[in-house]
């Protein structure tokens, strides 16, 4: 997933190892912004067929790589 984020956001000079599992993605940490949030929503749809229906869930889901992974796994378990 870290590799997918790097590719989707064209993050040059950053490797998957540079991104901590619990590192905040927005503002501090990776410093992502609102446009990146849209890119991450597209990433979830493209790669995991997950449509984020409730915008209020965004800050919680995209807090870190770990929270994204947990959201994806929960969604997949729900639809298994």
């Amino acid at each position: 997933m870290k590799r997918q984020i790097i590719e989707q956001l064209n993050m040059q000079d950053i490797t998957p190892e540079d991104i901590g599992d619990d590192q905040p993605l927005f503002v501090e940490g990776l410093g992502l912004d609102s446009i990146d949030a849209l890119e991450l929503i597209v990433l979830l749809q493209q790669h995991y067929k997950i449509k984020l229906s409730n915008a209020d869930d965004g800050p919680k889901v995209f807090r870190s790589v770990r929270t994204m992974a947990e959201y994806i796994m929960a969604h997949q378990a729900q639809n298994a």
Binding site: N10, I35, L38, E39, V42, Q45
Partner: peptide
């Protein structure tokens, strides 16, 4: 569908 915003913007 699923168009990324950056290129559009």
């Amino acid at each position: 569908e699923l168009l990324t915003p950056t290129a559009f913007i």
